[in-house]
Amino acid sequence: MEHDLAQIMSTVARNLEAEPDEQQTLASIVQAAVATVPGVRFGGITRLQRKRIDALVPTDERVLRSTEAQEEVGEGPCLDAVRGQQTIVADDLGSDTRWPRFAARAHELGVGSLITFQLYVQQRTLGALSLYGKTGVRFGDEARLVGEVFATHAALALSSARQHRQLNEALMSRDAIGQAKGLLMRQHGITGQRAFDLLVLASQESNIKLTEVAAWLVSEHEEPRGSRPRSGE
C-alpha cells in the first residue's frame, strides 16, 4: 500500500506542476483523492467565504447539493470541519444524530457516508476536503491517512493561490499609487510626499480607498472624460 501511495503521489505532484491555475490544481487533487481513498465515490472542496460555504471543483452534482443543504440548515460535517474540527467521519449519515436536519437531506440526495478533512496552514483554516461514499462504507485508518495526504496538498494549493492573489493586488496597488503620485507631482510641481498626502486627503474626504482614488486619477489622465465617446456613438 505504501509503495502504491508513493507512486500515486509522485504522479499527482508532477501533474500539479503543469496545472495553470487554482481551479485546475484543486480539481486534480480532488479527482486523485476520489480515485485513491478507499470507499470514496465523489468529492469536492468546501471553502468558507464571507461567513458562507461554497463548493469548489465538485466531481458530482450531489456535492453541490450537499453543500447547499448544510448552508441552508446551518449544520453538517463540512461546516464542522471548516469551523475547527480537523477530521470528521460519518459512516452512516442516515442514522447519525450529530446533524439530524442535514442527515435527512443527505438521505434524499443519496449520500450515505462522508469523511471530511479540515484544510489549514499555520493555524489558518482555509476550508475542507469532503469525500463521499455509499451507505455502510466505513472509512478506516487507511482512508484517513491517504485522505490527509491529499488534504495537505489541497491546503497548500489554496494557501499558495491566496498569497499569489494578495501579491498581485499589492503590486497593482503600489503601481497605481506610484503613477498617481507622479501625475500630481508633474501637474502641480510638488514633492512626492505632498502628492501622497493629497491622495490620502482625497481618500478620506471621499470615503474611497486610497488605491481606488489613485486608479481613478490614472484613468482620468489616460482617458480624459471629455475625450470619451458619447453613448450611442
Rank of each mutant, 00 (worst) to 15 (best):
residue 3 H to T: 06
residue 10 S to Y: 02
residue 10 S to G: 12
residue 11 T to A: 08
residue 11 T to W: 00
residue 16 L to D: 01
residue 17 E to Q: 10
residue 22 E to W: 07
residue 27 A to I: 04
residue 28 S to K: 10
residue 31 Q to E: 13
residue 32 A to G: 08
residue 34 V to C: 03
residue 37 V to C: 01
residue 37 V to N: 02
residue 38 P to S: 04
residue 39 G to A: 10
residue 40 V to D: 01
residue 41 R to H: 07
residue 43 G to S: 05
residue 48 L to R: 08
residue 49 Q to D: 13
residue 53 I to C: 08
residue 54 D to Q: 14
residue 54 D to E: 15
residue 55 A to C: 06
residue 62 R to L: 03
residue 65 R to S: 11
residue 67 T to K: 10
residue 68 E to H: 13
residue 69 A to R: 09
residue 73 V to S: 09
residue 73 V to R: 11
residue 75 E to G: 05
residue 76 G to W: 09
residue 78 C to G: 07
residue 81 A to H: 11
residue 81 A to Q: 11
residue 81 A to M: 08
residue 85 Q to E: 15
residue 86 Q to K: 14
residue 90 A to T: 15
residue 91 D to R: 08
residue 92 D to A: 11
residue 94 G to D: 05
residue 96 D to P: 03
residue 98 R to I: 00
residue 98 R to W: 09
residue 101 R to T: 13
residue 102 F to G: 04
residue 106 A to S: 07
residue 106 A to E: 02
residue 108 E to N: 09
residue 110 G to C: 05
residue 111 V to I: 05
residue 115 I to A: 01
residue 117 F to L: 02
residue 119 L to T: 00
residue 121 V to N: 06
residue 127 G to I: 03
residue 130 S to V: 04
residue 131 L to R: 00
residue 132 Y to L: 08
residue 138 R to H: 14
residue 138 R to L: 14
residue 139 F to T: 10
residue 141 D to M: 13
residue 142 E to H: 01
residue 147 G to W: 01
residue 147 G to R: 00
residue 147 G to T: 03
residue 150 F to H: 00
residue 151 A to E: 04
residue 154 A to L: 06
residue 155 A to K: 04
residue 155 A to G: 03
residue 158 L to Y: 01
residue 159 S to K: 12
residue 166 Q to R: 08
residue 168 N to A: 15
residue 169 E to T: 09
residue 170 A to G: 04
residue 172 M to Y: 12
residue 172 M to I: 07
residue 172 M to N: 15
residue 172 M to S: 15
residue 174 R to V: 09
residue 175 D to M: 07
residue 175 D to L: 07
residue 181 K to I: 15
residue 183 L to F: 04
residue 201 L to S: 11
residue 201 L to F: 14
residue 204 Q to V: 08
residue 205 E to T: 10
residue 207 N to I: 14
residue 207 N to Q: 15
residue 208 I to A: 08
residue 209 K to I: 06
residue 215 A to L: 13
residue 215 A to K: 02
residue 216 W to L: 14
residue 222 E to F: 09
residue 226 G to L: 13
residue 228 R to K: 07
residue 229 P to S: 12
residue 231 S to P: 10
residue 232 G to D: 05
residue 233 E to D: 11
residue 233 E to S: 12
residue 233 E to L: 13
